[in-house]
């Protein structure tokens, strides 16, 4: 299991429609500032007029930590800086923890716990 189960609620319905279609949706104001998906107002100019806008998918590694499941399996958790600006706290899959470095290029990917739950954005190393 890469990611755990998550259900949508009213606030996240459009976001999870996006992930189901392979798109990471961010919030963007009329001046073009991007905010993280959960933002209710623009983190740059406080505008309340936000629309959903898909991230291009490129990111770079800000920081990481390695946690272990009870069975010893390692999970790499990251802060990734999207090329649009916002940071996401998420998971890095398929990477060797020993080969990580600040600024490493990442690409958005998607994973889900099972067919009953929503699709979650994760990161992998850019190819």
């Amino acid at each position: 299991m890469t990611v755990g189960p998550v259900d949508r609620d009213d606030a996240t319905a459009e976001f999870f429609d996006g992930t189901a279609a392979g798109r990471l949706l961010l919030r963007r104001c009329e001046q073009g500032h991007y905010s993280e998906p959960a933002a209710a107002q623009c983190t740059t100019c406080a505008s309340l007029r936000l629309e959903w806008a898909a991230a291009a998918g490129g990111a770079s590694l800000v920081s990481w930590t390695i946690t272990r499941q009870p069975d010893g399996a390692a999970t790499v958790l990251v802060i990734a800086e999207l090329d649009e600006g916002p940071w996401l706290w998420s998971q890095l899959v398929g990477a060797d923890p020993a080969a990580l470095a600040a600024g490493l290029r990442l690409a958005v990917s998607f994973a889900r716990a099972d067919a009953e739950h929503e699709t979650v954005p994760v990161f992998e190393l850019a190819r």
Partner: peptide
């Protein structure tokens, strides 16, 4: 298991330990 906090938990970012470790 729902909404934005559910998303964070599903990603594995759970509790203070990983958050401070990232810092």
């Amino acid at each position: 298991g729902a909404g934005w906090w559910g998303l964070l938990g599903a990603s594995g970012v759970i509790g203070a330990n990983p958050m401070y470790a990232l810092a």
